[in-house]
């Protein structure tokens, strides 16, 4: 399998490190490698520490946190060359960087999978920063490219109105890992509720599909489906490895044969497990990808899906729906 890469973006002080500290401390049963700009603010419970050197911290849960060293892309190459790769790579982009410039590599590199851009914005300072004559454009850009937009420091009731799109309030999340990393099939609980905040769904896919068919489905997926990943059998043999997050996805060929599996996740309150997996509604939600008929773009269900999307009202600040603006296939001229 390819290595999923998630990029965490956001301006200085937005809360990237706090998010990383939470991520490293949560139980998610994934061996993460987290590359950060500096260790200054990384705060690991001493009981979780296995070892710490000048540029690497190893944790008892199998996670590793390291500084990225001389050259980010070469560091990514080094991770890919490891005999024992981590389960997920997380890169903290610098406070002024465009996280998309890093995240695009996950779409380009066959050995990486697109794990999305998670941008953190500060509820107290974002509105001011976004109109700053010197850095406003870059700060706004970080929010615009996000697949998942998280708002920090909202406890006092502040909200960054200038983001102009839906965002997730970090203070309402008990766990951040499902949102930042996605889930593996074995992590989807039978009861459907992962945590108070999330709804999840998992199903097998046994019929093969073409890339175009998968793309057609993805174009009309529910805006409330935050993440979807897994493997779908490919027409003509082998399979496609699918990673969907926010407005973006990557579909890469994979040699595995046989039945595939998909895992979807959304925020509870916006989408229910039944909705994600709704077989009757067909393609209303991509969760229905598990339903064979849904993978035929010509079916009426797809049209239903489109209509459903148009009708759907974004219920405000807790929604991730937004405008999907499918960026797939956008060629740079």
């Amino acid at each position: 399998m390819s290595l999923p890469l998630t990029v965490i973006g956001g301006y200085l002080g937005a809360g990237k490190t706090t998010l990383i500290n939470r991520l490293l401390g949560e139980s998610h049963a994934q061996r993460l490698m987290v590359m950060v700009n500096d260790f200054g603010a990384i705060n690991i419970d001493a009981g979780l520490l296995v070892s710490a050197s000048e540029d690497t911290i190893a944790l008892t849960n199998g996670c590793v946190c390291c500084t990225m060293g001389a050259d980010l892309f070469m560091a990514v190459g080094d991770v890919l060359d490891l005999a024992d790769r981590p389960d997920h790579l997380v890169i903290e982009s610098s406070g002024i960087a465009d996280p998309a410039k890093i995240a695009q590599v996950a779409k380009a590199e066959p050995d990486l999978a697109y794990g999305g851009i998670v941008t953190v914005v500060d509820a107290l300072t974002y509105d001011g920063l976004s109109i700053d004559p010197q850095i406003g454009a870059q700060v706004r850009g970080q929010a615009q490219v996000a697949d998942v937009l998280l708002v920090s420091k909202s406890e006092g009731g502040a909200w960054p109105d200038a983001v102009g799109r839906e965002a997730v309030d970090l203070s309402t999340l008990e766990k951040v890992a499902p949102l930042v990393l996605g889930l593996r099939p074995d992590q989807v609980p039978k009861a459907g509720l992962l945590h108070a905040d999330y709804a999840s769904w998992s199903d097998t896919v046994d019929l093969p599909f073409s890339r175009e068919e998968i793309e057609a489905i993805l174009m009309v997926r529910s805006p409330d489906l935050l993440r979807l990943k897994g493997r779908v059998p490919a027409k003509g043999g082998g399979s496609f490895e699918l990673h969907v997050v926010g407005a973006n996805w990557s579909i890469k060929t994979h040699p595995a044969e046989g039945v595939g599996q998909l895992v979807g996740i959304g925020l509870k309150g916006l989408i229910s497990r039944d909705e994600i997996a709704d077989r009757r509604a067909g393609a209303r939600h991509l969760g229905a990808a598990g339903q064979h008929s849904a993978f035929s773009p010509a079916t009426p269900q797809i049209c239903d899906g489109l209509i459903a999307r148009d009708r759907m009202q974004c219920p405000g600040r807790f929604s991730i729906c937004g405008d999907w603006r499918p960026r797939f296939g956008r060629a740079v001229q």
Binding site: F73, Q104, A108, V332
Partner: peptide
């Protein structure tokens, strides 16, 4: 089928060969 910014595509949908910025250059350089 490549879906990555910086991998320039021609009118026929195939990559022209031009790769812009490190994210797109990296897989070839590697």
């Amino acid at each position: 089928g490549t879906n990555a910014e910086g991998v320039v595509k021609g009118s026929d949908g195939a990559p022209t060969g031009e790769l812009q910025e490190m994210a797109a250059m990296f897989p070839v350089m590697r």
